[in-house]
Amino acid sequence: MIRLNNLQKEYKGFKLDITMDVPEGRVTGLIGRNGAGKTTTIKCILGLVRPTAGEAEVFGRNPLDLTSDERQMIGVALSESGFSMLFTLEDVIKVLSASYKDFDEKRFRDMCSAQSLPFDKQIKDYSSGMKAKLRVLVAISHNAKLLILDEPTAGLDVIARNDILAIIRKYLDENPERSIVISSHISSDLEGLCDDIYMISDGKIILHEDTDVLLGKYGLIKMSSEEFETLDKRYIVAKQEDRFSVTCLTSEKQFYVENYPKLVIENAHIDDIIVLMLGGEK
């Protein structure tokens, strides 16, 4: 569905250089710190910016060449951009209705009511949670086959985040052909949703792995410096030393569970993986 081949985009002081492949029916997560390149990547996918080198393909074509009909199949939620703040839900409904052939007005109204979004207030008077929910509801309002969600849960409290994730899960359940590219810096949201994760840092992909493998095979091992000396380091991906111990990231925790039963071995969450890969030594 989406293919980015050595896609490069340069700005002052920043260079994006990534290769990415999202097949149909996949939920792919893009994780990285603020400024790492998530939004730039998404803008390249959507054709909002032009790459300086390399190619981007969506539905097999350059995103800038997609026809209006093809663009109908894409649902978008951007983190800092949406409908005019002066609009009310009624305005939004009228514009969506005129823009998308498959806009399902009744379902959209029902979902807005279910999320307690006020129909007669201007968007500028919405709370940030409501604004975020509206953006996601708009993205899924027209039966899009491909959803591109840029930080849909940023800045929200845990309940609001869960509400949005639930909305997304339900959308996926309705049609197994739907695909999603979702970017976030909240990895716990992505762990329970995405099939695979791309970690991006400083414009580059530093890790791409199935979530299943990340959670199943990666692990954290905690030990003393002495124990680290004698450790078989074949499957150690990164390490971090602090005053009292050494923490290692491994991509084969079973190996260490079996051979070093005395060491403290924990499941690694994506946050741990990021911290160690970016902060630790390799």
Partner: peptide, 13 residues
């Protein structure tokens, strides 16, 4: 306003 152009350009136009 409010960076709205980015979103407008993601509509099917």
């Amino acid at each position: 306003n409010d960076n709205g152009m980015s979103f407008i350009m993601t509509l099917p136009n």
